[in-house]
């Protein structure tokens, strides 16, 4: 259930990212990217975000989660590939010595707020 901790962290990150003229209750959309390797269950994360958002003042916010596929580069032959299964072997040369290019980490990537713009 690390999703609960992540949901709390998303809310805290959103609050820290708001400019002075925007309040938490004006936030309508929150967007995050989660690496596929992080094994975040997006339905669970959204469910938990919805469950705790009101007490955090973000009651109008909807969370969208984009899962970022895992991409690797082979250190032996420099081939780059996307993983469909969690098998970190180069499909070109078979080496298991691969660097992760993307697909790990959770980032806040967008906030929308219902504010009259000047």
């Amino acid at each position: 259930m690390h999703e609960l901790y992540i949901a709390q962290s998303i809310i805290s990150s959103v609050k820290k990212s708001l400019p002075n003229n925007v309040t938490a209750d004006q936030v309508t959309h929150v967007r995050v990217e989660a690496g596929q390797l992080d094994a975040v269950v997006d339905e669970t994360l959204i469910f938990l975000f919805d469950a705790i958002k009101a007490e955090s003042g973000l009651s109008a916010a909807t969370l969208t989660v984009e899962i970022i596929p895992v991409r690797c580069r082979c250190k032996a032959c420099a081939h780059e590939f996307t993983l469909d299964l969690p098998i970190f072997l180069c499909p070109q040369c078979g080496s298991g010595d691969v660097d992760l290019l993307q697909g790990r980490g959770i980032r806040l990537t967008g906030i929308k707020a219902d504010v009259e713009e000047d």
């Binding site: 992540i6 990150s13 820290k16 925007v22 980490g105 980032r107 906030i111 707020a113 504010v115």
Partner: peptide, 14 residues
């Protein structure tokens, strides 16, 4: 309005 942001969600724990 769109609020531009790129932020590591786990920055506090890190």
């Amino acid at each position: 309005m769109d609020i531009p942001v790129i932020r590591d969600v786990l920055e506090e724990t890190n």
